[in-house]
Computed example of a mutant assay.
Amino acid sequence: MGKRADRKQRTTRRRRKGSRARIACGVALLAVMMAGAGAAVAHYRDTGVRERPVADAEPVILETPATHTPARSPSPSPSPSASKKPEPSASSSPSPSPSSTRIDVPAVGPGTFRTAQADSSVVGEGARVRRYKVVVEDGIAIDPGAAADEVAAILGDERGWTEDGVNSFRLVGSGSYDFVVKIATPGTVDRICGAAGLLTRGEVNCSVGTDVVVNLKRWVLGSPEFAGPIGEYRALIVNHEVGHRIGHGHETCPGPGRPAPAMMQQIKGLQGCVANAWPYDGSGKYLGGPSVP
């Protein structure tokens, strides 16, 4: 009996010891698992902070609200009358044909300008004749006279603002004027527009006071949102900024597949519309859209 009792006691002690060992092992394993989970959470949070996407950095066109308060609301979409001209062919109403010569785009210029010595006749039948000059910043490889010819062709096009029956335009090289088209380097654009509190970031144009400020980068390179030839994009620049000068505000896309209004900020995206440089079509229909507050 004594030997049996000793064996029984030793068996009981081994079982207790094994249970304690298993418990200790389980606790240790649980601690390892919790530590691993904590490390995973810490890594996730740290990664999330570092990889958060930044805000969209695409340029926007910002302009002085007072400058662009519409003096009148353009007709949303007037129906062409029987007296309107038929749709012109490409040959009867050509788009401007800029030179194919490569033009460098300096980051900044001296801020002084050369004036195109030009004095044209009035284009349009509107009673409000707006006299304008064209100037080019010194150091830019653009001839002021050639630039003035191109701007005049845009403002005299029958798809342009003269079609409203209110406005006419006359290019002048001296004397009084209603506005001046300034083609300038990105740095000079930022300075002129920035003086009025506008943020152009060296990328876009602006319209302030009597100045229609054209960014050389856009004049030469166009916009990734505009698939047409560079002459058409230059027409959009002039029509958009001069549109502000004569009292038009921003508009947006009227519907998928329709022409984007000339007063739409097309550089920010077309919203389903088709790129378009002109405020009117060849039959006299206004290519507008809903107003942007």
Score class of each variant (00 low, 15 high):
L198N: 12
C253M: 03
G228C: 06
T185P: 08
R191P: 00
L216E: 00
P256M: 03
G243L: 11
L236N: 13
A235V: 10
E251Y: 01
L216G: 01
G231I: 11
V213C: 05
I237F: 05
L198M: 15
E241Y: 01
A235H: 11
C193K: 11
G222A: 09
E203W: 08
A227Q: 15
G209Q: 06
L236M: 13
H250C: 01
V238A: 13
H248G: 01
N215A: 10
R191L: 08
V208K: 06
C193G: 11
K217P: 02
G194F: 11
L199H: 11
R245E: 15
V220E: 12
A227G: 14
G255C: 03
C206Q: 11
V180S: 14
G209D: 10
E225K: 14
V220D: 12
E203Q: 14
G257Q: 07
G194R: 12
G209F: 02
A195W: 02
G247S: 09
S223N: 12
G231N: 09
T210E: 12
R234D: 01
S207V: 14
R245S: 13
V220L: 11
E232L: 10
A184T: 02
R258F: 00
I246R: 01
L216N: 01
V204S: 08
V180E: 15
V214I: 15
I192L: 15
E232C: 00
A227D: 15
H250D: 14
Y233W: 13
H250W: 11
R234G: 03
I237R: 04
R245C: 04
V181E: 04
L221H: 15
L199I: 14
G197A: 09
T252Y: 01
A196C: 05
A195N: 14
S223E: 08
T252S: 13
P224G: 03
I246E: 00
V214N: 03
I230W: 02
I246S: 03
T252K: 08
G197W: 10
G222C: 08
G197E: 09
L216T: 00
V212G: 04
V242A: 13
I246Q: 01
P224L: 06
V242K: 07
T210D: 15
K182E: 12
P186T: 06
F226I: 09
K217Y: 07
P256A: 13
G228K: 14
V181G: 06
G257S: 05
